[in-house]
Amino acid sequence: MSKPYAIRTALEEILDGLVEGDPFPPERELAQRFGVARETLRQAVHELLVEGRIERRGRGTVVAKPKLVQPLSLKSYTEGALRMGRKPGRLLVTWEDVEATPELTAALDVPDGDPVMHLERVLLADGQRIGLESTYLPRHRFGDFTETFDPTTSLYAAIRATGVRFGSAVERVETVLAAPREAALLESTTAMPMLRLHRRSLDVDDRPIEVVRSLYRGDRVAFEALLNDRD
């Protein structure tokens, strides 16, 4: 058994005896216990941090909460969080009208250069920053939202309340590193792997509803999809 694998196995055994919020032993103590160099131990600890098994808190390290598992479906982030017993929340970053780029013109079926609503929010779960969501909406369909929508609440619930019914969406998921601004908003670092989602949603009449670009902390969020082949 290789030394890195043996160290990782030993750290897994330590985690098995701990629960969420328990302090995780410091690197110096662990290196002395297992008789390995700090560098060897640090790599194994870093892997646990990236996987979201442990997290830095203040000057120490503790056992992390389980990842928030979100469905890849036409459901809102709020529904996914509540399903796991987590409290959803949002912090408004930007809410403005922007001029439609050629990409948005095609995706939202609006005239070139028309104003498009841009809503950027930090997503929270139990007060933890887990994602950064940037949504573009056609102003001619949802212009009233500037007066009626509370950006700390569910956008999908507000859209459905207008009578719009979601019909379909195409979503792409990629692994990326955050830019400095994004990392700061998510209270993370540019070295932490992120999951980037790009979604275009249509209503039941195939009219564009939104374009969404979301960035999620890979150590705090996972995604799942229900697959079947019944044909």
Rank of each mutant, 00 (worst) to 15 (best):
E171S: 12
M1Y: 12
R196V: 06
P111R: 03
G17E: 12
R217I: 15
S73Q: 09
T162P: 03
G127R: 09
H118V: 01
E182K: 02
L124F: 10
V204P: 14
E147P: 05
I130K: 05
F24M: 01
H46W: 12
V93C: 00
V170A: 02
D22A: 11
R141K: 15
T78R: 02
Y156V: 14
F223Y: 12
L124W: 04
T135H: 09
L92C: 07
V176F: 00
Q128C: 05
L177Q: 02
P66D: 08
L226C: 10
R207A: 11
M192C: 11
L195E: 09
M192Y: 08
Y216Q: 06
G167P: 02
S2Y: 06
D231A: 15
E12M: 10
D219P: 12
A64W: 03
A169T: 08
V36D: 02
R165K: 07
R230P: 09
V98N: 01
A161W: 01
G167V: 00
V98S: 00
L119F: 11
R53N: 13
S134N: 14
V204R: 15
L123W: 04
T78P: 00
I14L: 13
T146G: 14
D229S: 12
G21L: 00
V36N: 05
G85K: 08
L11P: 08
M117F: 05
D144Y: 11
G60E: 09
P4R: 04
L11E: 08
A37F: 11
V176W: 00
E120A: 08
L202F: 14
G17D: 09
T152I: 10
D206E: 15
T190V: 07
I14Q: 06
R56F: 06
G218T: 13
L202I: 07
P180E: 00
P151Y: 05
L18D: 03
V176D: 00
P4L: 00
T135R: 14
L30D: 00
F166A: 07
A107G: 00
R121H: 07
I159D: 03
V164Q: 01
P25C: 10
A107Y: 00
V36G: 06
L215K: 11
P71Q: 05
L226H: 15
E133S: 14
S214P: 10
A37K: 14
E224I: 13
L195P: 08
E103F: 12
V173D: 01
L132C: 07
L74S: 06
H198Y: 12
V204G: 13
G85E: 01
D219M: 11
R86P: 01
A178E: 03
G89H: 02
P71E: 03
V63I: 08
E99L: 05
V170R: 09
F24P: 04
L82H: 07
L132N: 06
V69E: 14
G35E: 09
D150H: 03
Y156L: 08
D16K: 15
A100F: 05
T152E: 15
T153I: 03
L186T: 13
L92G: 06
L227D: 05
L15C: 10
S201T: 15
L48S: 09
E224A: 15
I14A: 05
R53T: 03
G60H: 13
T61V: 13
E12Q: 14
E39F: 15
T162Q: 09
M1K: 14
Y216M: 12
V50M: 10
S2N: 13
F34C: 04
R181D: 02
D206Y: 14
G52P: 15
F166P: 04
L74Q: 08
A44H: 06
T190N: 04
L68V: 13
G80W: 00
